[in-house]
């Protein structure tokens, strides 16, 4: 466990205005793995008829969580930025339920971090979305 990296990742992520705006919060962070939760909110709905959260809000959550996973990796020298991120939407998230996501930085080189993530609502058996991404590896400037 490397608490300094996790602490830095937490501090950096929690200070992001858009993270605060969407009400995202950590439930786990450390050693290249991060879990976050985003409560359902009427403002983030994508389909007013059903109340389903917009895919973009789920993207924002997964992107944030992937970035935090990279920064919390024991070998991470500092910050990171998204190079590319692919999201697959399996099903709509159930209205009224939080969206939870866990991201794993499964490989970190000197220049690139590779990450994958899964998102769920209250049903652990059926993912809402999965993501794979490549992130930059940057020292603290």
């Amino acid at each position: 466990m490397t608490p300094d990296k996790a602490e830095m990742a937490r501090h950096f992520t929690e200070s992001i205005p858009h993270v605060k705006a969407l009400g995202m919060a950590f439930t786990h962070l450390g050693d290249g793995e991060a879990s976050m939760r985003m409560p359902w909110d009427a403002r983030f709905v994508g389909d007013p008829e059903t109340g389903v959260i917009h895919g973009g809000a789920v993207s924002a959550l997964m992107d944030t969580c992937c970035g935090a996973a990279v920064m919390s990796h024991p070998a991470s020298p500092g910050t990171t930025a998204t190079l590319d991120l692919r999201i697959d939407y399996m099903r709509p998230a159930t209205p009224g339920q939080s969206v939870r996501t866990t991201a794993t930085c499964y490989r970190l080189t000197r220049t690139v971090a590779f990450v994958r993530a899964t998102a769920w609502d209250d049903d652990d058996a059926r993912p809402v979305a999965t993501a794979t991404g490549a992130f930059t590896v940057e020292g603290v400037t």
Partner: peptide, 14 residues
């Protein structure tokens, strides 16, 4: 990214 500052990647995606 408040240090730069830059648009959130999730905002760009959305």
């Amino acid at each position: 990214n408040p240090r730069l500052p830059a648009l959130h990647g999730g905002v760009t995606a959305a």
